[in-house]
């Protein structure tokens, strides 16, 4: 199935998605990778308020390449980064915030449970940064530039962002885990 969704995502928008479906997203997405995840969790512990809203948010595991122009920031190249690095931080992150979708690449180990009935994991083709940049129409804001360009939180407006493959759905089905399991079996057979 193919879906075209708009942010902020509602629970019913993502509950209908099944692993393997294709999604195109329009609206607002927030980039966050290693350092931003760490800071969001740290601020949560200290009960400090974030400078951006996470209600129904879509988080994009991405450290974009940006260029500052006279008219503000411009996206040069903005593909997904390896989600696996955020695996450990994601369950507490999802518990604290009503994030509805995570976009990344490569999947995440042991997060299917944390995503259940809450959120989906959407896989975007790794390295396809020029293609992604074409679909990002506006840089709406940037937070935490002190973390460096790749680690900062960029608020982006996207149109028909995709194709995104539903990698982990709200029912706990995880394509990456299934394929890893099969590969492991094949490895044992060959070894």
């Amino acid at each position: 199935m193919e879906y075209h969704l708009k942010t902020p995502l509602k629970k019913e928008d993502i509950e209908k998605l099944s692993a393997g479906d294709i999604v195109y997203l329009s609206g607002e997405i927030l980039t966050a990778r290693d350092e931003a995840h760490a800071r969001i969790l740290e601020m949560g512990e200290k009960k400090e308020e974030l400078p951006f809203s996470m209600e129904g948010a879509v988080i994009y595991h991405c450290g974009p390449l940006m260029k500052q122009t006279e008219n503000g920031w411009k996206v040069v190249s903005a593909g997904p980064t390896t989600s696996g690095r955020m695996s450990k931080m994601t369950p507490p992150f999802l518990k604290a915030h009503q994030v509805r979708a995570i976009i990344g690449k490569g999947g995440m180990k042991d997060v299917a449970d944390a995503l259940k009935n809450r959120s989906v994991y959407l896989a975007y083709t790794g390295g396809c940064a020029a293609l992604a940049a074409e679909l990002i129409k506006e840089v709406k804001a940037v937070h935490w530039l002190d973390l460096g360009m790749p680690e900062a939180v960029w608020v982006l407006r996207v149109e028909e962002f995709g194709p995104l493959i539903v990698g982990i759905d709200t029912k706990g089905k995880d394509i990456f885990a299934e394929i890893r399991e099969k590969a492991q079996k094949q490895l044992e057979k060959q070894g």
């Binding site: 393997g20 294709i22 991405c62 450290g63 974009p64 390449l65 040069v76 190249s77 903005a78 593909g79 980064t81 083709t125 390295g127 396809c128 940064a129 020029a130 293609l131 992604a132 940049a133 074409e134 790749p150 194709p163 493959i165």
Partner: peptide, 27 residues
Amino acid sequence: VAKSQLQAILKNLEIAKKYRVPMCQDT
């Protein structure tokens, strides 16, 4: 699904070449 990903890669290469931008943000 894999084919769609390979097609996205090939399309990405065309766009990078056309606009003279890095093919991946991880330069």
